[in-house]
Design a protein around this nucleic acid. Structure first.
Length: 424
RNA sequence: GGAGAGGUCGCAUAGUGGUCUAGUGCGCCGCACUCGAAAUGCGGUGAGGCGCAAGUCUCCGAGAGUUCGAAUCUCUCCCUCUCCGCCA
């Protein structure tokens, strides 16, 4: 959702900015309904004001015992009352219409975001480490995992279906070690406060983060109008929905471990092998609530916090800045962290660190007050993965596989895994 | 799941059909008194929309209804608490 005044007063700038993303927004519909909406409202309010005056005078006349005059006043109200109920219905209707249109607006890209139509025009910001050298072609993680009995993909599919994974033995232990290590790292080293949210959320929460109404087909829905979380971003961002925060408490930095559930409806046939794209996975997510003037500095440090996990593990990665055309609807600016996966032979997206500015806070109505008596302002909201487990799991298996067939565990994970090496 | 009690402007409370533009206390802000503070006194202190402004409208958990008029009456739903049942 965007600022209504911005759309009204800087229409062409908004249009051009959205066009940079290669998207269109219902700007003309918005403007048309906005005008009628205000006309309806002004007209209605005049009638309501008159009705209030008459009703009040009836009360006063009754109090003074002037029954007849009160009755006379009552008879004036019939026509007014009908007009008001029609006006109220029209106002409700237009308010719903404009809200529906507003929810379809994508966020505007920040000025610093490079132009570009799709991922081919993204920009490599930096790389860390180097591709590890192997004497022979390294195995893909599904082969390493099979050999070391860390994954049972056929039985995962039997239990739930294609795209669901059963981790076994040391694989299950490694998987559990990863998110435990990461949530500990973000809370103890990078200053995040840990939260553990519900895995099921209501519609209002999903509208707040921008997953609904547009991306319903990506979500698992259960009875009672609840949805499985596609990421902890949804419940964590909504912690402060409809609240006014104290400006002195910002920036708020939260980190959450959660399971994530995605239908991956539009991705059939892509990345189907191993654990590269699965319906259920674990992730540590970081969310920040900031003052507007701090959000871009906080985006840089959020990115550094995500990277720090990979540095601790000694994994080669690169940081990509998304061009306008690859940003998606919600983001104002976004960096992806891509992890080198030597067996698959590709960089895998493992984290997305985004500044949403006030796009989500306007939808979720999350504000802050700078000081007592000041008008509430919308906070800026950022989030980033820190990180997603399956691809990290894959990269570790592929990067640290040894010539003798064993798997060397990175130093930082050894206390969690309980060994320095996994053997067949 | 069953029974009961509740949800009022940061917190606590009052309000059971009309001077409620929601009262009071606490907290908070400003001013006065003071060398300074405490205490005290006075004033202020929710959100949103429309409007250049004056102003005006909406919001007492949410929605619908009754009425000239609803915080107050009716219905539906949500949430909290207590007890019972079931259960990791």
């Amino acid at each position: 959702m965007l600022d209504r005044d911005l759309i009204r007063n800087h229409t062409e700038a908004v249009r051009a900015s959205i066009a940079r993303k290669g998207l269109v927004a219902p700007i003309d519909e918005f403007l048309a309904i906005d005008v009628t909406r205000r006309l309806i409202q002004t007209e209605l309010q005049e009638k309501q004001a008159e009705m209030n005056r008459i009703s009040k005078s009836i009360g006063m006349l009754m109090g003074q015992g002037k029954k007849e005059e009160a009755e006379a006043a009552k008879s004036q109200t019939k026509e007014l009352k009908d007009a008001i109920s029609i006006g109220e219905a029209r106002q409700r209707e237009t308010e719903l219409e404009i809200r529906e249109i507003e929810l379809q607006f994508p966020n505007l890209p920040h000025d610093s975001v490079p132009n570009g139509k799709d991922e081919s025009e993204n920009v490599v910001v930096r790389t860390w480490g180097e591709k590890p050298a192997f004497d022979e072609q390294p195995q893909a993680h599904w082969d390493v995992a099979d050999r070391l009995k860390m994954l049972d993909l056929p039985r995962g599919a039997k239990i739930a279906g294609s795209g669901f994974v059963l981790y076994t033995g040391q694989g299950a232990r490694l998987q559990r070690s990863l998110f435990t290590f990461m949530i500990n790292h973000q809370t103890s080293k990078n200053g995040y406060t840990e939260v553990y949210p519900p895995y099921l959320v209501n519609r209002a929460s999903l509208i707040g983060t921008g997953n609904l109404p547009k991306f319903e087909e990506d979500l698992y829905k259960v009875d009672d109008d609840l949805y499985l979380v596609p990421t902890a971003e949804v419940p964590v961002t909504n912690i402060y929905r409809d609240e006014i925060l104290n400006g002195d408490d910002l920036t708020i930095k939260l980190a959450a471990y959660s399971g994530c559930f995605r239908r991956e409806a539009g991705a059939a046939g892509k990345d189907t092998r191993g654990v590269l794209r699965i319906h259920q996975f674990d992730k540590v997510e970081m969310v920040k609530f900031t003052r507007p003037e701090d959000s871009y500095a906080e985006l840089e440090s959020l990115l550094v916090d995500a990277e720090s996990v990979l540095q601790e593990l000694g994994l080669h990665y690169r940081v990509i800045e998304l061009c306008a055309g690859d940003l998606g609807a919600k983001g104002a600016k976004c960096y992806d962290v891509e992890l080198w996966s030597p067996g698959v032979g590709r960089y895998l997206e493992i984290s997305s660190c985004s500044n949403f500015e006030a796009y989500q806070s306007r939808r979720a109505n999350i504000r802050f007050r700078r000081a007592q008596g000041d008008k509430p302002e919308f906070v800026h909201i950022l989030n980033g993965s820190g990180l997603a487990c399956p691809r990290l799991f894959a990269a570790i298996l592929e990067t640290f596989q040894q010539p003798d067939g064993s798997l060397l565990i990175p130093e930082a994970l050894r206390p969690y895994v309980g060994t320095d090496r996994i053997v067949a």
